[in-house]
Amino acid sequence: MKKKSASSSLSRRQFLKGFGSGVAGSVALNKIASALPLQKTLEKAADNANRTPLKLSVNGKAYRLSVEPNRTLAEVIREDLQLTGTKVVCNHGECGACTVLLDGEAVYSCHILALDADGKSVTTIEGLLGGEELHPLQKAFVKKDGIQCGFCTPGQIMAAQALLLKNPHPAKEDVLEGMSGNLCRCGAYPKIIESVLEAAKKD
C-alpha cells in the first residue's frame, strides 16, 4: 500500500474515529469529569494485567502482540493491526464476511480467539495485493461484477482463495460447495460463482 504523507490530509477513518470519540467524550465529560482519570487508570492497569503475549504472522509480516484472551482474531486484525479489509458482520461465525486464511485454510476470524492463532500464519484480503496490483481473484470479481454493495466481498474472495489453493481448477459444483460458508445479502451469488470460475480459468 502507498504511504500517505503525514502532513497532508487526515484519512477518512482517522476523521471518523476522532469525530466519534469527540461526541462520546463531550457527553461523558459533563457527568463524570472528575471520576474519569482514575477510572481510566484502573481500567488500563487491569487490561495490562490480563494480557497474554501473542506471536502472529500476518500477510508475511511477524508481529509480537499482547492481547486479552476474550478478543477475537478479527478484532485484533482490525483494531490492533488496522487491517480493516476484514469485515465483521454477524460476529457469530455464520456469514463469512470475516473469512481469513489461517495456515492456508479458510476460517471465520470473528469466531476464533486471537490467542488460538498463536504461532500461526494469517492471510487477510490485504495480503493478496501485490503492491498496487490486484490479485487475479480481485480482478475476476471486478471483471465479472461479483460485487453489489461489496461488504461481503473480502470474505468471499478469501474463501475463494482457500478453495483455489486446494483445488486450482474446480468444477462449478466445487465452487458452490467451497463458497457455501459466505452469505451475500445483495444476492450476487451467480456473479460471485462466475468470478471464482473466471479466476480459476486464468491459473
Binding site: G93, T99, A106, V107, Y108, A162, L163, S180, G181, N182
Partner: peptide
C-alpha cells in the same frame, strides 16, 4: 456439517 470454514475450525 456446517460450512467449509466451520469444518476447518
Amino acid at each position: 456439517t456446517a460450512s467449509p470454514q466451520l469444518r476447518n475450525m
